[in-house]
Amino acid sequence: MSTPSTLAGPGTLAAVAEQTEGILAEFLTRKAASAAAHRMPDEVTTVLRDFLAAGGKRLRPLLCAAGWHAASGHGTPDSVLRVAASLEMFHAFALIHDDIMDHSDTRRGKPTIHHALAARHRDRRTAAAADQLGASAAILIGDLALTWADELLHTAGLSRRQLTAVLPLVDVMRTEVMYGQYLDLTSAGTSSTNLPLALAICRYKTAKYTIERPLHIGATLAGADESLRAALSDFALLLGEAFQLRDDLLGVYGNPALTGKPALDDLREGKHTALTALALQRANPTQADQLRRFLGCPQLTDDQASVARNIITATGARDTVERMITDRCEQAEHALTHAPIPPDTAAALSHLAHVATRRTT
């Protein structure tokens, strides 16, 4: 199973995504068969399979493949695709737990796993007991996704050299995203003007985990040296920050029909983002008082959210974040032109950058 040795254009990127989907589907089919043979609950694999099949950008697998090609890897071997699939399985783990922490109702336009599991058991329990079961069971399914991400990685067919080289990168990627999530969790609801903290969350929760480390992992599989990984970082960290800044805007201004997530979640959670930090920095006292009352309010109404959005816009924070995204994208493109990678891979990365930062979902 392989793709041509070029990643130029969206067509071949789509092929990598499709092959990754196939690996995940086949893996979960085998897990379902094993569960049935041992009389284990079938809903565990069913719920995880449905979650993975519900959509997603598959950005991490694509960047892993792009990293392989950036280091002049030939074709896209099955082993590389399986490592890419392990990154998507790990991402499923992270999203499942993230939705529990954020009390999110929907993901990709469908009920989050903890809500879906609660609904399955509500006919035999009180609503509160079903909700508790749903959250607890979702934690276990997230843990299982983490375990299976390891299994996909260790059974990918890598050489001993490849596995030895890539495991430290996988470990540091996981550590970084946990720290990023911790910062995100502990800073929520504080109504802070701390822009450096918001950007640190951007870097560790998203830029490194979503862009930099998948590129590094793919490149390392092809034998990349430190200088190439550094050049990829120059591109990746800027793009990753732009990606998260776009996500922050969509979390407040996005259309739920397109994003697949409620329009109130980030405001109700009081997420500490560059958008809210800038708004609070620039708001007059009346605006700041009103905004602080709304940020982190679990019962925030649609009308109150509309007022909060109007205040954020009036401070100029929304326009500033748009400029920050544009600036980072331009700098990332500049870094890409100076990176020692094949032109077709640079074209593919440029395409991914465009998709990642100009999206509406």
Rank of each mutant, 00 (worst) to 15 (best):
G218T: 06
H216M: 15
D225A: 09
K208T: 01
L195E: 09
L197M: 07
R213G: 00
R229K: 14
A222I: 03
E226L: 12
P214I: 01
Y209N: 12
R203T: 06
A207R: 08
Y209E: 15
L199N: 09
K205V: 01
G223D: 11
T220F: 10
E226I: 05
S227G: 08
P214W: 11
A224I: 02
A219Y: 01
L199C: 08
L199Y: 06
C202N: 07
Y209M: 15
P214A: 15
E226D: 12
A222K: 05
P196T: 04
T220A: 12
I211P: 04
R203L: 14
P196Q: 08
I217Q: 07
I211L: 15
L221Y: 05
D225M: 09
P214M: 15
C202F: 04
A224W: 00
A200D: 10
A224F: 04
L228I: 03
A200Y: 04
Y204K: 01
R229F: 13
L199R: 10
I201P: 00
G223T: 05
R213Q: 08
S227Q: 13
A224E: 01
K208P: 01
I217W: 04
I217F: 13
L228D: 00
T220G: 10
C202R: 04
L195R: 06
K208L: 08
A198D: 08
E226H: 10
A198K: 02
G223A: 10
E212W: 01
T220C: 12
E226Q: 13
D225G: 09
G218V: 04
I211N: 00
G223Y: 07
C202E: 09
A222N: 09
P196L: 11
R213W: 07
E212H: 14
T210V: 10
K205T: 02
I217P: 03
K208Q: 11
A222H: 11
S227D: 12
S227E: 13
L221F: 06
Y209A: 15
K208I: 03
R213T: 02
L195Q: 07
R203K: 13
R229D: 05
G218Q: 13
R203D: 12
Y204F: 08
R203Y: 10
E226Y: 07
Y209V: 12
A222S: 13
P196D: 08
T220M: 13
R203V: 06
L228M: 11
K208V: 02
A207N: 08
P214Q: 14
T210H: 11
G218S: 12
D225I: 05
T210R: 05
I217E: 02
D225K: 04
Y209D: 15
I217V: 08
R213S: 02
K205F: 03
A198H: 02
I217C: 12
N194P: 12
A200V: 06
E212L: 09
E212M: 13
G223K: 10
L195S: 06
E212I: 03
L221D: 01
L199E: 10
T210K: 03
L221C: 09
T206D: 14
D225N: 11
D225R: 07
L199I: 04
K208F: 07
K208D: 04
T220W: 09
R213N: 05
R203H: 11
E212P: 01
E212A: 13
T210S: 15
I211T: 05
T210C: 15
L215E: 04
L215G: 07
K208R: 12
I201F: 00
L215D: 03
A224N: 03
Y204N: 02
T210Q: 14
